[in-house]
């Protein structure tokens, strides 16, 4: 039976929301600048900590910067870190996890050891040390740090999956024909893991967006760049919560939550696609069965 990814309301919602934010990150700053005439960095002295108004739809910050423009500009920063971090993390977990599962033996054990090492490493302190060492940390560096320290869990999953696919008869059969390891990995094993990899990427995306915000909150960020994380950090530093400047920290927080939710919803669908056992009998099938029973019964009567 064919399974459609979009036959599922949750997934459609997730794709729409995520698509919106991606679009916002791509063209948003141009819209704010050229169409609305707002700028994220300009300080409007006439409106300091002003609540939402016609001029500033989401109000302004302590420094008179427009919150809407900042949120849109921040989408670019956060999504950039999110995607780059997820790409780096997923790439490393594929490069380490798949061979670890496919080869087994010494190679597999070595790669597995590396994975476990990164899994048990105290990541947060390390990040602080590295951030301190690197001094000015740009968004690229943040994404890089998030990716490099966040791949281990995914690699473990991929290792287990690659191991089970590698032991299936069709891989053995192609090996018996004389197919090389490289081809076996890329042509026979890897395509079966696409679902897992996609799911891992989405997980990584949520993780990276959150991690960026978390790190910014803790002070590891690029103070000149604008992202949702830096916005929240600035709001927190100026005690926006205590002073009731809700328009300053609620929008970026909400955006992070929305992106996370969207990615998670897509993930449900991808998971079901990658792992048919989760599909079992959906409520729709049960409903249809019941409807069919009734239809038949009324026909008979």
């Amino acid at each position: 039976m064919k399974y459609s990814l979009f036959g599922n309301g949750k997934v459609t919602f997730g794709v729409v929301v995520l698509g919106f934010f991606v679009l916002l990150a791509l063209v948003g700053p141009w819209i704010t600048g050229s169409v609305l005439g707002l700028d994220a960095r300009t300080n409007d002295i006439s409106a300091i900590s002003a609540p939402p108004s016609a001029e500033h739809p989401l109000g302004t910050t302590q420094f008179g910067q427009d919150v809407l423009a900042q949120v849109i500009e921040g989408a670019r920063g956060s999504m950039f870190v999110g995607f780059l971090g997820a790409i780096i993390g997923t790439a490393i977990s594929v490069l380490i996890g798949v061979p670890a599962g496919y080869f087994g033996g010494t190679t597999g054990n070595l790669l597995n050891f590396l994975t476990n090492l990164f899994l048990v490493m105290p990541v947060l302190p390390l990040i602080f040390v590295i951030a301190g060492y690197l001094q000015g940390t740009g968004l690229v560096m943040i994404a890089f740090i998030i990716g490099v320290f966040g791949w281990a869990g995914g690699a473990r999953t991929l290792r287990a999956q690659a191991m089970s696919v590698s032991n299936r008869d069709f891989v053995q059969a192609m090996r018996m024909l004389g197919e090389s390891n490289t081809r076996l990995i890329f042509s026979e094993v890897l395509p079966h893991l696409y679902g897992w990899i996609a799911s891992m990427f989405l997980g990584g995306l949520i993780g990276a967006v959150m991690a960026e915000a978390g790190l910014a909150f803790l002070g590891v960020s690029d103070s000149s760049a604008i992202s949702w994380g830096t916005m929240i950090q600035a709001a927190q530093q100026q005690s926006a919560v205590l002073r009731g400047l809700w328009w300053w920290f609620v929008p970026p927080g909400l955006c992070i939550a929305l992106v996370g939710t969207a990615a998670a919803l897509i993930n449900f669908g991808v998971d079901e696609l990658a792992n048919p056992k989760l599909r079992s009998v959906s409520r729709r099938v049960v409903k249809r069965t019941a409807a069919h029973r009734i239809a038949v019964a009324s026909e008979g009567a």
Partner: peptide
């Protein structure tokens, strides 16, 4: 039997 199987007659 489990859904989607139905005894219809």
């Amino acid at each position: 039997q489990r859904p989607p199987a139905v005894t219809t007659a």
